[in-house]
Simulated assay, not measured.
Amino acid sequence: MADKLKITLVKSTIGAIPKQRATVEALGLKKLNKTVELPDNGATRGMIQRVRHLVKVEEI
């Protein structure tokens, strides 16, 4: 398991359901192609799983 995850928003949330929009915002992503680094834990993995079609994830 990696120490941190690099998460990038690659698809717009315009057509997404409100719960998915809230999850993307909770991950700290506001604009398209922006990247955040978050700790690799169960909570983060769960949020990524909900919006996996909108984000790109790399282990660092």
Rank of each mutant, 00 (worst) to 15 (best):
residue 33 N to I: 14
residue 21 R to D: 01
residue 46 G to W: 08
residue 28 G to T: 03
residue 53 H to A: 09
residue 2 A to K: 03
residue 40 D to Q: 05
residue 19 K to R: 14
residue 20 Q to Y: 14
residue 21 R to F: 05
residue 30 K to R: 15
residue 4 K to R: 13
residue 41 N to Q: 09
residue 31 K to L: 08
residue 45 R to V: 01
residue 1 M to W: 10
residue 20 Q to C: 10
residue 15 G to D: 02
residue 9 L to F: 13
residue 60 I to R: 00
residue 47 M to Y: 03
residue 27 L to S: 02
residue 32 L to S: 08
residue 3 D to E: 14
residue 37 E to W: 13
residue 2 A to C: 00
residue 49 Q to N: 12
residue 10 V to T: 14
residue 23 T to S: 12
residue 50 R to C: 00
residue 18 P to E: 11
residue 34 K to T: 11
residue 25 E to V: 08
residue 36 V to T: 00
residue 12 S to K: 15
residue 41 N to K: 12
residue 56 K to L: 12
residue 7 I to G: 09
residue 4 K to V: 05
residue 46 G to Y: 10
residue 14 I to F: 10
residue 22 A to D: 07
residue 60 I to T: 00
residue 58 E to P: 08
residue 55 V to E: 00
residue 26 A to I: 14
residue 3 D to N: 12
residue 43 A to R: 03
residue 57 V to N: 02
residue 40 D to M: 10
residue 18 P to Y: 12
residue 46 G to T: 10
residue 51 V to T: 03
residue 54 L to D: 01
residue 54 L to N: 00
residue 15 G to A: 04
residue 43 A to K: 02
residue 5 L to S: 01
residue 18 P to S: 13
residue 56 K to F: 10
residue 28 G to F: 05
residue 40 D to H: 09
residue 58 E to C: 07
residue 29 L to N: 02
residue 40 D to C: 12
residue 39 P to M: 09
residue 33 N to E: 13
residue 9 L to V: 11
residue 30 K to C: 05
residue 35 T to V: 08
residue 47 M to G: 03
residue 48 I to C: 07
residue 54 L to E: 02
residue 34 K to M: 13
residue 20 Q to L: 09
residue 8 T to W: 06
residue 33 N to Y: 12
residue 20 Q to P: 05
